[in-house]
Amino acid sequence: MRANLLPDFLIIGAGKCGTTSVDNYLKQHPSIYVTNVKEPNFFGYELIKPEDFPDKSKLKHYYDSVTDLESYQALFSEAQPDQLLGETSNTYLYHDRAPERIRHYVPNVKMAAIFRQPAERLYSRFLHLARVNELPTKKFESVLDKNSIWWTRNDLIKEGFYYKNLVRFFDYFPKDQIKTYLFEDLKNNPQEVMQNITDHIGADSSFEFDFSVQYNRSGFIKNKFYDRMVGHNSIIKNGIKSLIPSKAYSKLQRSPWIRKKFTDIKNKNLSRPPLHPDLKKKVTEFYAKDIQQLSKLINRDLDHWLVC
């Protein structure tokens, strides 16, 4: 086992902006090791205890995360000595303590953040929660109610204030340690984006990635029985996991061919009703000032995000 099992790079979010795809693409690279556990959230939760949660409904996410150093380092234990280590946790963008804790442990770590038009991101989050049967409200229109759960949970309205979330990191790290990307760039030219990310973290940027799999697609489930067989938490998946050693299962997870087969099957069972333009415009208005501030911070023209 390597002596210093701490990440060389972090994908810090935002959620529903392509981070799952980037996480899986990086796993293809022979000189990169990405943890099998996506979103360990260690740097966000390390100093937090269960009793610190006034809202006990949020404890499930805490208990699903990795909150002690030994367990966090164990996530990297299967890496080869010459591999770069990394992980993806979208919560780091909005966890108040994350930037300071990241600097405490890995002050030279390279980070990447990916952003998407915030109304589109929020709607994609809605569809994701529909897929896993955890909708905060039955209708997306509820986001317009500022007294609703959409405005109190970190992963809903709040996560879309990218400038507010990202600017805190520059209090702890120089700008050259944090690269920012747009979802549309990843969608339209994934090879260029992945080459830029691999170059940023210090890996061979000439590696040719396989982009044939559509990861983490969201939507309403068409057939629930079918989903129980092949979906996110399927009987088949759990059966395979229980029958073979953990290392063999990890190897299967990293196979692009296996991932493509299962992902294609899952995606065919999803329905994605479109976001109504009027509703998109109203949601975008909440983010208008933050979008303008983000544009200046990352030196990218984001005016097209404001036109609905």
Rank of each mutant, 00 (worst) to 15 (best):
R103H: 15
R103L: 07
H104A: 13
H104D: 06
H104R: 15
H104F: 10
Y105S: 15
Y105E: 13
Y105P: 14
V106I: 15
V106G: 05
N108F: 06
N108R: 13
V109L: 09
V109F: 01
V109S: 12
V109C: 15
V109M: 12
M111S: 05
A112C: 14
I114K: 05
I114Y: 14
I114V: 15
F115E: 03
R116V: 13
Q117I: 08
Q117L: 06
P118K: 01
P118T: 05
P118E: 00
A119W: 08
A119E: 02
A119Y: 11
E120Y: 02
E120C: 09
R121G: 13
Y123F: 15
Y123K: 00
Y123T: 11
Y123S: 09
S124H: 10
S124A: 14
F126P: 02
L127E: 03
A130V: 05
A130D: 11
R131Y: 03
R131P: 01
R131V: 02
V132N: 09
N133R: 10
N133V: 00
E134C: 07
E134D: 09
E134H: 12
L135M: 08
L135C: 01
L135N: 02
P136H: 08
P136M: 03
K138R: 13
K139F: 13
K139C: 09
K139Q: 12
F140A: 00
F140R: 00
F140P: 01
E141I: 06
E141G: 11
E141D: 14
E141P: 01
S142C: 02
V143G: 10
V143D: 12
L144S: 11
K146G: 00
K146S: 08
N147F: 02
N147P: 03
N147M: 01
N147I: 01
N147Q: 14
S148M: 08
W150Q: 06
W151F: 06
W151Y: 03
W151I: 05
W151R: 06
W151S: 05
T152D: 13
R153S: 14
R153N: 14
R153W: 09
R153Q: 14
N154L: 12
N154Y: 07
N154T: 12
N154P: 06
D155E: 14
L156F: 15
L156W: 14
L156G: 05
L156H: 15
I157G: 04
E159D: 13
E159Y: 06
E159G: 06
G160V: 11
F161Q: 08
Y162R: 08
N165K: 07
N165D: 04
L166V: 09
V167D: 05
V167G: 00
F169V: 07
F170K: 09
P174D: 14
K175S: 06
D176G: 00
Q177Y: 02
Q177H: 11
K179R: 13
T180I: 02
T180N: 03
Y181T: 07
Y181R: 04
F183N: 10
F183D: 06
F183P: 12
D185I: 07
K187D: 10
K187P: 03
K187Q: 14
N188D: 13
N189P: 00
P190W: 03
Q191K: 09
E192P: 00
E192D: 12
V193G: 00
V193M: 04
M194L: 14
M194G: 04
Q195F: 02
Q195H: 11
Q195I: 05
N196D: 15
I197R: 04
I197S: 07
I197M: 10
I197A: 05
T198V: 10
T198L: 05
T198P: 07
T198W: 01
